[in-house]
Nucleic acid binder design. Sequence first.
DNA 1: TTGACATAATACCATTTGGTTTTATATGTA
DNA 2: TACATATAAAACCAAATGGTATTATGTCAA
Lengths: 120, 120
Amino acid sequence: MDHHRSDTSDVTLSGVEQLGFRALADPTRRSILRLLAASDMTIAEVAENFQMTRAAVKKHLTILDEGNLISVQTRGRSRLNTLNADGLRDVFDWFEYFNAFWDDRLNTLKTEIEKDIKTQ
Amino acid sequence: MDHHRSDTSDVTLSGVEQLGFRALADPTRRSILRLLAASDMTIAEVAENFQMTRAAVKKHLTILDEGNLISVQTRGRSRLNTLNADGLRDVFDWFEYFNAFWDDRLNTLKTEIEKDIKTQ
DNA sequence: TTGACATAATACCATTTGGTTTTATATGTA
DNA sequence: TACATATAAAACCAAATGGTATTATGTCAA
C-alpha cells in the first residue's frame, strides 16, 4: 500500500468496452443480442419480437451499437443490424483478466495451505 | 419461424443473474470487484480507494451483493466483503451459452460456403 | 410526382441511478 | 458507563434511463 493512492481506473480499453457493459445491463438488449446471434435483422424485424414501440427498440439498438456489440449496415431504406463479435470479445476479455486475478488468489491460497500441511 | 411468437425472455436463471449484469454496468463497481479479487475488505477499506463517500461505496457494495457478485460476513462492528465466484460464473455462463449460439451460426455459414464451393 | 414505408429525430414523462448529507444503531474499549 | 468507531438508514437532488407519441427525412414503386 503506497501513498494512500486513490485508484478508480477501469484498467481496460477505457471508455470503449465500458459501454459494452452498460449495454448488457438491460434484459431487452441481451434478448436482442440473442436474436441477432440467430440472424441479422432490420429494426422492424427485431421490434416484432417485443411489445414496445419501434422507437424504443431503435434506442436499444443505438446503445448496443455504442457499446460496439452490434454493427449496422444501411441497405436501401432499411438498416440491417448485425452482431459484432469483436465488441463482445472485449467484454469477455474483462472476465478473462479478472479470472486470472481470481485464479492467482486461489493458487496462492492453495500454496499456503500446502505449506501449512508440510510444516505441521 | 413459428406462430409469430413474441419472446422477450432472458432464458437464464431469470431475475437472478440479471442483477449481476446490472451490477457490472458501473465502472466503480467493476473496480471494486478488482480490489476484492486481491483481498477481502471492509467498507472503509474499499472506500479508501475512491473519492466518493463511504455511504456511496456502501450503496455500490449493496448492488454487488444483490447481483451475487460479492458476499458479506459481519465480523464484529465491521463487514467483510468477499468476492463471490459463483455469481461471477453465472454471468460468465451467459456468455458461454451465447457463444454457443454464435459459433453455431459461424459453423452454418462455413458449411454453406463449403457447399457453394463444391457445387461450383 | 405521389404515396407508402422504414428509419431518424425530437419533445416529453416517470422511474432509476449515483451521489450527497444527516441521523441512527451497534459494537468495541477506556 | 461513556465515548469513539463502523456501518445502516433515510431524505434529498441532479442526471441518466426506458419508455411514449409526434413529426421529419429518405427511398422504393406505381
